[in-house]
């Protein structure tokens, strides 16, 4: 079983602050982490390998420091890693990113299952996984919460939908995006970390994956960002105390005087 995991290094948005004057992220001192949803993808890849054998390759596109995300994947049990990095890729939107990743996967050649997190916590688009499948012209199963069965030729997986579950069967190769309900990611081991530290991680540029020009980076990105703004800050709430009738009266009065009702 040849497994590919696509991961992304993201700022740890749980600790991020926004400069209220400029509406931009305060990047100083913000730690970079592997996108949490991708950690579930890595874990599922390792579990698949434990079940079926094979090899796992982790793939990321990003600046040179994204290499540390790949080392983390290696420390958990991924066998090989490739960094796709070059100035020419800068400014990629989800279209260009998924095109670039798909081109790298074609270069790797043989693959049975591609795993991605359902979305990244910085962009939140959930488009890159499905985009990769589209560019490779292979089936995709998104929002997977359980892999029920996998054989040499097919896979059956349970999707988590808003109003229930859907069980899909697909031939291989297939691309899956996973949700956090699928597993509990393991911690790295010391041996894994030592192996990861020494691992050789090749860096691929446009020429390595036969892409270029208008296909990649900003030029290959049809998305136009009109405006970026931080969500409006909410003031603190107000609690009306006393017995229910009294509190409701106060609430209605407040809403009326604010011309909200």
């Amino acid at each position: 079983m040849q497994i590919i995991v696509c991961i992304k290094q993201v700022p740890d948005t749980t600790n991020i602050k926004i400069n209220p004057e400029t509406n931009t992220l305060i990047r100083e001192g913000v730690e970079c982490i592997v996108n949490p949803f991708d950690m579930y993808a890595i874990e599922e890849a390792i579990r698949l390998k434990e079940r079926c054998g094979g090899k796992i390759t982790a793939l990321t596109m990003g600046p040179p420091q994204a290499e540390s995300a790949l080392r983390e994947a290696l420390s958990l049990g991924v066998d090989e890693a490739v960094l796709i990095s070059n100035r020419a890729f800068a400014g990629s939107d989800t279209w260009a990113t998924s095109f670039t990743l798909a081109s790298a996967i074609r270069k790797i050649g043989h693959y049975d299952i591609i795993l991605c997190g359902k979305q990244a916590i910085d962009g939140d688009t959930a488009q890159v996984g499905p985009g990769v499948a589209a560019h490779l012209n292979i089936p995709q199963i998104t929002f997977v919460k359980k892999i029920e069965e996998v054989t040499d030729r097919s896979i059956r997986a349970e999707r988590m939908m808003e109003e229930g579950f859907q069980i899909l069967e697909s031939p291989l190769p297939v691309l899956l995006t996973v949700v956090k309900e699928i597993n509990e990611p393991r911690l790295p081991s010391l041996r894994g970390k030592m192996k990861a530290r020494k691992a050789d991680i090749p860096v691929w540029g446009p020429e390595d994956i036969d892409v270029g020009g208008d296909q990649i980076g900003l030029n290959g990105s049809p998305t136009y960002v009109a405006k970026i703004f931080a969500p409006e800050r909410k003031g603190s709430g107000k609690i009306f105390r006393g017995d229910a009738e009294e509190a409701v009266d106060q609430l209605i009065h407040e809403l009326r005087s604010g011309k909200l009702i």
């Binding site: 393991r186 911690l187 010391l190 041996r191």
Partner: peptide, 8 residues
């Protein structure tokens, strides 16, 4: 154990 701490 899984983290190899007993082997340190």
């Amino acid at each position: 154990g899984d983290a190899d701490l007993f082997g340190i």
